[in-house]
């Protein structure tokens, strides 16, 4: 009874590739992914919560794709869908290709932790009762584990005695380095970092982000999931803007400048203008609830430039100025 058998094998539908037109083959290619949860609300009454709606994105080797968006927009669920660790009541449709082959549940199981690694959000993901060195080593698979662990500790400036410590004995910055070390010890080709920097001191943020940049420069593909646009802009190559479980825009880093005129979607513009260093303006309204998504554009209820058409038809993604946008008014 695997929930993920619903991942369709259908690759014949042609969806315009939402990318900047690079010729390099993407390592990860997600097309038209939707994720919903089934909930029983009483008796046999079911309700469906659609948390990710027809999402497409690609990550290529050597680049950092930042996925930015509000909390509760389904960013972490995207990471969990790629790794195949969604809970059992999840229903998935669409295609996920890794090196041009379908990511089946079996393949996800054999790839995660080896070729696809996660840098988790919180230090709480470390086992509190296990010494750090042992935890890092357990991700290495193989007889050379101890040697590999010494190598990554060296690389991330963790002293040798750190391996004997428990997670609670580490400082915040050290714990971050341990998490990155765990993700990279097995030479993963795709690294997914889920909110690696919230509430950290700027120096630690910078250090964590630099580690991710180094990984990309070694020709790995990095997906950085964050709500912090400013942090993402310092290291990413492309930015996917997430709203209510879908990518409304894929933009280049250079598009985030001045008043945001170069951005394509009204939500991305609003997000950029809301930054404290920009205009600090708040757009009223909240994200639509996953059990009551509007039939048309997901941003339409809060959008200033919405027209009646926006409320009825969900905009398709289209290429625009070297990026992607999902808005009929974007030009």
């Amino acid at each position: 009874m695997s929930n993920q058998t619903a991942v369709s094998q259908n690759t014949s539908t042609t969806i315009p590739e939402a990318s900047t037109g690079g010729t390099m083959m993407p390592l990860l290619d997600v097309r038209d992914l939707s994720v919903s949860f089934v909930q029983y609300t009483g008796g046999l009454q079911m309700r469906f919560l659609t948390v990710i709606t027809s999402l497409s994105l690609t990550v290529r080797p050597g680049e950092i794709l930042a996925v930015v968006g509000s909390s509760g927009s389904g960013k972490s669920l995207l990471a969990h869908a790629i790794l195949g660790i969604l809970p059992n009541n999840a229903r998935i449709s669409g295609t996920m290709l890794y090196v041009n082959e379908d990511l089946t549940p079996e393949r996800q199981m054999s790839l995660r932790g080896r070729e696809i690694a996660l840098v988790p959000q919180s230090v709480n993901f470390l086992d509190p009762l296990m010494r750090v060195g042992f935890q890092v080593r357990s991700a290495a698979h193989g007889s050379e584990a101890a040697k590999a662990q010494r190598r990554v500790f060296d690389r991330y400036h963790l002293a040798d005695q750190v391996k004997g410590l428990f997670p609670f004995q580490l400082s915040g910055g050290m714990a971050r380095r341990v998490l990155v070390a765990t993700a990279t010890i097995s030479d993963a080709r795709l690294v997914i970092a889920d909110e690696p920097t919230p509430g950290l001191h700027p120096a630690v943020v910078k250090e964590t982000l630099n580690h991710l940049r180094e990984l990309a420069d070694e020709d790995r593909a990095v997906m950085l999931i964050t709500h912090d646009i400013e942090a993402a802009l310092t290291i990413a190559d492309r930015i996917a803007v997430f709203y209510a479980g879908t990518t409304v825009e894929i933009a280049l880093v250079a598009d985030f400048t001045d008043n945001g005129e170069a951005l394509r979607h009204p939500y991305s513009k609003a997000l950029w203008r809301a930054l404290a260093k920009n205009e600090f303006v708040a757009t009223p309204g909240a994200q639509p609830s996953p059990d009551a998504l509007p039939p048309g554009c997901l941003f339409q209820p809060n959008c200033k430039i919405a027209t009646p058409e926006c409320a009825s038809v969900r905009p398709k993604e289209r290429e625009l100025r070297g990026g992607m946008v999902r808005c009929i008014h974007a030009a």
Partner: peptide, 9 residues
């Protein structure tokens, strides 16, 4: 841990 729009709000 909030996005810029929610922060501003």
């Amino acid at each position: 841990m909030l996005d810029a729009i929610t922060q501003a709000q």
